[in-house]
Structure formats: C-alpha cells, structure tokens
Design a protein around this nucleic acid. Sequence first.
DNA 1: ATAATAAAGGATAGTTTTGTCCTTAATTAT
DNA 2: ATAATTAAGGACAAAACTATCCTTTATTAT
Lengths: 163, 163
Amino acid sequence: MSRQGVATQTTTAMFSKSTEYALRAVIFIGQKGSEGKKLGIPEIAAAIGSPPQFTAKILQLLTKNSQVVSSVRGPNGGFFLTEAAKNLPVKAILASTGEENVLTKCVLGLYQCSEVNPCPMHNDYKSIRRQMIQLFETKTIRELAEETDNGKVLINDMGKQVY
Amino acid sequence: MSRQGVATQTTTAMFSKSTEYALRAVIFIGQKGSEGKKLGIPEIAAAIGSPPQFTAKILQLLTKNSQVVSSVRGPNGGFFLTEAAKNLPVKAILASTGEENVLTKCVLGLYQCSEVNPCPMHNDYKSIRRQMIQLFETKTIRELAEETDNGKVLINDMGKQVY
DNA sequence: ATAATAAAGGATAGTTTTGTCCTTAATTAT
DNA sequence: ATAATTAAGGACAAAACTATCCTTTATTAT
C-alpha cells in the first residue's frame, strides 16, 4: 500500500516502535531473567513479538547508551538485569532510545511553549503531563516485571498470555 | 547527519509533525479567519511556522478527510472555519491525520491490551488515558482559538507572540 | 471571454525509522 | 588450542513520514 504526498498515519502510538520494543523487552527480561539465567535474543523477540535482529539493535542501545540492561557474549550468554537496574524508573528505558522528552514536550510541538509562554493547549494539558512524568519517574522496572509475573498480565504482541 | 542501523530519535513528540501542524493551523484559522475573512496558505504557514507546501497538503486533509476546515479557491479564496466547525472537539483534528488513536492506544503498543487483558502499564496509565481522551473530546476548537486570542498565548514555532 | 488568483492534487525527492544481512569479537565448553 | 555459541556492530534495504515541485481546477475580477 503506497501512499503519496499526503499522510494519514497507519499505526499511531505515543512512542516509537523502538521504544515500545525496548519497554516490552526490559519488562520481559526483568521478569524471566536474572544474573543466573540470561535470556537470548530469539527468546526475547519471540516473547514480546518483535523482529529479532531489530530487537538486537535495541538491546544494544539499552546496554550501551543507558545501562539498563546487562549482557554477556558466548555460550550461556545473553541479557539480564542487575538488581540495581531493576530499581531504575521506567523513564530510564525511554532515555536509551532518546525519547524521554515525549513526556515533557508541548502537545503542539512548540519549542517556546512554557508556563510563562503557554500554547493554547498548555494549561489544559499541564496536569496530564505532570502525572505522566510522575508515572515514568517513579514506577520502577521491578514493579512492572513483578506485575507481569502475576500470571495475568500481557506482554507480547500476539495477545498471548505470559505465565 | 546520517545515522545507520540503530535509532535514538531526533525529535520526539506525542504527535506527528503532520498532526502538530494540523492542530496549530486549525487553531490559527479559528482565531484569525472567518467566512468573511479567509486565510491563504502563505499566511497560515508563516504564522504557525510550517513549510507552506506541506501545510497545503495537511489543509487538504482537514477539508477533505474530515470536514474541519472549509476552503474556496480563486481570488479572495482561502481557508476558514464555519461556526459549526469551531464547536468541534480538538479530537476531530486528530481524526483528519488518522492519529486519533494515539489517545487510546496501549503504551507498550500491544493490540490485545485491555481492561481484562492488561499490559504491565495498563492500570497505572488508565487514569491518564481517561483524562487525555476527556480533554481532546470536550475541548473545542473555539475554546482554543479564543484562548489564543487573549494576546498572551503562543501559536507559532518561532516563539513569537500572536496578538 | 480573459486573465489572475488560490486551492486541489499528482508526482517525486529527501529524511527518518524500521528491519535485515552478514561479519567480528568475546566467552565458554571440549 | 579449537570449536561452538552469542552479543556487537557495520552495511544496507524497505517502509513511512516529511517536504517540494508543478500541473490542473475552481473562482473572481476585469
């Protein structure tokens, strides 16, 4: 399906695909993996419903850019989260894909928008923004992983349950 | 600046550029224009800080896809909002660019995520989503345009005030 | 009627994001 | 030491989004 000229988005989401995969991958690794049990790319990609090679790239960001995820190469290698990393806020994941400011940016995309120089949406959106930042800064990876672990929380793209 | 392979977004926003321009354009037209005073593409683009030709495409979406904006061709032609259109909710603008479901979609991008099948973020995000939908469904274009008209609200990308 | 004006719309180019392929490097097991 | 395994990373391909160019169509003024 090729569209020309104009746009009308196909899929639309708050975050980019990269960030969505990053969030899902980290939550999954936090739930199923540990320093003792590392997870490989095929396993992670299958679980969260993402293309393996692309997932590998995103895991690179998560280990390199930020240090949310740890990795070791070679046999029995793979990805895992340290106990310290599990205590990081969800926002740390956004940072690895450079998308943290989705939370703070002006709805109309205006750089100058601020409390003293508000866009028409500013005052109405302000409280929502505050809550969004609060959520991503206080909720930890550990909390999300444990929630998933309850056995009744969705993590992959196919709608299958993760027990 | 060409990046290869991996990602780390450059600009990041809740909405696409198209939608940002659409929102700004409609607010501006609602404020400065009327059935009697139609606005041309150069004027609109300059005011909201967007590329004129691209803005033209987006205005097409706004007149064709949805019927948020009205237009007439020829001399003294241009774009304007009917009084009825001014009463439309801001969400109607999102609809024209096919981005309305940014408001409702799962934060992790999971299609199956729902109240009975929640993703790990679902319960925490739920209330924020509700407020976001509420805002875009109840706030009208007229209200935003009038707020802009107060003479102290930002509308363009250069940080200049619109009086 | 004709010319001028302004949006509509088709085609195409540029950029970013998403996704894949394949080689390299590190680690482990034998 | 050697081979096997797994992530790291470079190069490239495909798709989507952003942006521009140019022709056509509708409308108005002369």
